[in-house]
Simulated scan of single mutants.
Amino acid sequence: MRIERLTDDATTGLFYRQVIVPSFPDEQLVTRESLVADLHSGVGEVFIVRDEAGTLLGGAVGSWYEAPRVMLLSYLAVAEEGRGTGVGTFLLGHLVRDWAQRYDPCLIVAEVERPDRHTGNPAHGDPEARLRFYARLGARALDLPYFQPALESQKARVHGMLLLLLHAAPKFADERAQSVAAGPLRDFLTEYLVATEREVAQQDPATSALWQGLDRAGGVAVRPVDRYEQIAAG
């Protein structure tokens, strides 16, 4: 297997159609045009995995938030041809190392569905299995009532999500890695909400609960992924 970082519209569009769209529900999808625009602006990065014959096995999309220095793993998906071959493990391990070296981020995070709020299906996968996958690679869950912002004006927010921690720079985590600094997360979420929803809603209950989680003394607690039910749902 080999990893390629995409720079051209055609292959990015092919990856979007063949891998991303079949793997996620519509409300969790940006448009192909948005993905390509982010790629050209430097905000987004797209990586794919191919086998030795050139078959597209899977890929991932990252979104870099420069001011708060946070990398969001927006999508990671494996095509049917690549399932059960270790593609996801190979790709995620590479990306976390690569992003940590190239960007020196405060945090690398990922959005996933809560298994107690979302049910799996053959097309979009099993949330329980997805959490086990991330846990095997060292991910932990941030203690925030998280929701995915509305990615397009005609779409709704996705409630019942988890924000996973994939990497934290040492100065942004406590000595025992029990919590991370809230500042980079607050700045990242502010930028994310403004970019997608055009504002940070002041009177919205879900947003207020998220901000209250960021305001707890001692930073944002980090939980083992298998204890995600201890985290309030957003």
Rank of each mutant, 00 (worst) to 15 (best):
L189R: 07
Y65C: 01
Y134W: 11
D116G: 12
P184C: 12
E4R: 08
G219V: 03
L185S: 09
V46S: 00
P184H: 02
D26K: 13
E81K: 03
L165V: 02
Y103G: 13
R136V: 07
W99N: 04
M161A: 07
G120M: 12
Q203R: 13
S34G: 07
G58M: 04
G93T: 04
V30W: 06
V21H: 05
L131Y: 05
A169Q: 05
D38K: 06
G84R: 07
M71H: 09
G86S: 07
L185G: 04
R130A: 02
N121G: 15
D98Y: 08
A181Y: 08
A217K: 10
A77K: 04
P145W: 09
V43E: 09
P68C: 13
G213H: 09
S208R: 15
V200R: 07
L72P: 05
G58V: 02
A77N: 01
P122K: 14
L137I: 04
A156Q: 15
P122H: 12
G86C: 05
Y134A: 07
H118D: 09
F24E: 08
R132G: 10
S41H: 00
A77D: 00
P145Q: 11
A79Y: 03
E52L: 13
A206W: 12
H118C: 14
V194P: 10
L92M: 05
L164C: 03
A206P: 01
R223F: 14
F147P: 12
S63T: 06
G88S: 05
Y103R: 15
V180M: 07
R102L: 11
G88Y: 02
E229K: 15
A139M: 10
E66Q: 14
A123G: 10
A79H: 09
